[in-house]
Amino acid sequence: MNVFNIVIAGVGGQGVLMASKVLAESALKSGMDVKQNEVHGMAQRGGSVISFVRIGDKVSSPVVMPGTADILISFEPLEALRYLHYLKPGGKVVYSRVTINPSTVASGLALYPADVEAQIKAKCSNSHAIEALSIAHEAGNAKAVNMVMVGSVMKSLPLESGVIEGVVAELSQGKGVDVNLKALRGGAAAA
């Protein structure tokens, strides 16, 4: 198999790294080569976060080039639009509909564009919006948005859903196992 490129975008603190880890571990369990990379540091304080997961027979660079991503998973609409150019022609974007104000908007220095979703639709014919926050709430924890989002793309990945579920169960602790699995399945059902 050639390399399958996944880009995960979001806001610091949303659990982008955990989602990346789930996908990377699932690929390893499936006998594939994996490189996963995100830039942390300043991103933690509510900044924009982008993470790459590359899976396949043999993966060299840890970085996804613009125009080559098979799938973009975004935990926030504005971040989906910001990184949309990473998609290859025909690539798919799945995003959570709940908006989070950037600090520039919160402090009145900029406006959150009203037409973000319309812009995404206009630029990408393969776009899917997910009500991730309400699904996470139903699963029992608003913080499980990241698992909802992983669930929502599960069927589009070259990975078995069962393997992903196994990894989520392994990486979650205590009560989190149930919540995360519920969130994952809720996301899958909504896709």
Binding site: S48, G67, L81, H85
Partner: peptide, 20 residues
Amino acid sequence: AVAKSAAPVEGLPQRPPTFC
């Protein structure tokens, strides 16, 4: 040549880090 990609969308509000 490099893979063609769409230009990044311009004029979006920045999301710099800030105090928690």
